[in-house]
Computed example of a mutant assay.
Amino acid sequence: FIIDIYRLPPKETMSKLMDIADAFKIDYLGKYIGDYSHGMKQKLMVAIALMREPAVIFLDEPTVGLDASSAGKLKAWLRNMADKGTTVFMTTHVLEVAEKMCDRIGIIDSGRLIAEGTLSALREDFGSVESTLEELFLDITGDSSIEALAKSLQEGM
């Protein structure tokens, strides 16, 4: 279906899909999608996106529902694609993923882009050289309630 929609060369694309399926242990392609678990569906969607080798790829929370091994493979695959010139746009609520994977980071608050740049530039502009992305996010968005909660919990111990 995807091969037809995007008018991809069938043999070459199926070969790529089989390589991706092997890497992500997708051994259920002959079954009905309705019978797939969330993680199985997520792997299939990733495989469909990767097999097309697009110049630009948009992924919304691509590691959600993946086991640790598949998530690690996906991160490595995306890093390799980016290193070869593919532009990867990825949303994530897991700031450690963004911190480790992204060349540039955009912080969105209430639907507005409020900060954007490399991690080092964000550290220079909003924090310190040691700041984690989570600390920067809390400072930039003004949500210090988490830090206050942590402090009150420590005082209660």
Rank of each mutant, 00 (worst) to 15 (best):
H38T: 15
P10C: 06
A150W: 07
F89T: 00
L66G: 08
T86H: 14
T13E: 05
T118M: 07
R112I: 06
R52Q: 15
I105S: 07
G39I: 15
K100H: 01
L50D: 10
L78P: 00
K31R: 15
V64P: 00
Y36E: 13
F89G: 01
M157Y: 10
S110F: 06
I48K: 10
E135G: 00
M101S: 08
S152K: 12
M51R: 09
I5G: 01
M40Y: 13
T141N: 09
I107H: 02
D103Q: 11
V97M: 11
D4Y: 07
E135I: 12
M14A: 02
I33W: 02
M81C: 01
V56Y: 14
E147Q: 15
I107K: 02
S15M: 04
R104P: 00
I2C: 05
L17C: 05
Q154W: 03
L66M: 13
Q42M: 14
L122N: 05
P54Q: 12
K41C: 12
R104G: 01
G127N: 07
L136V: 05
F89Y: 09
V129F: 05
V56K: 11
I20M: 08
D35P: 00
K73D: 03
G65H: 02
A55C: 04
I140E: 14
V88F: 03
R79T: 10
K25S: 15
M51S: 09
E116D: 09
P10T: 06
I2S: 05
L29M: 11
P62E: 09
A47C: 14
Q154D: 12
I20K: 12
K31P: 01
I57C: 03
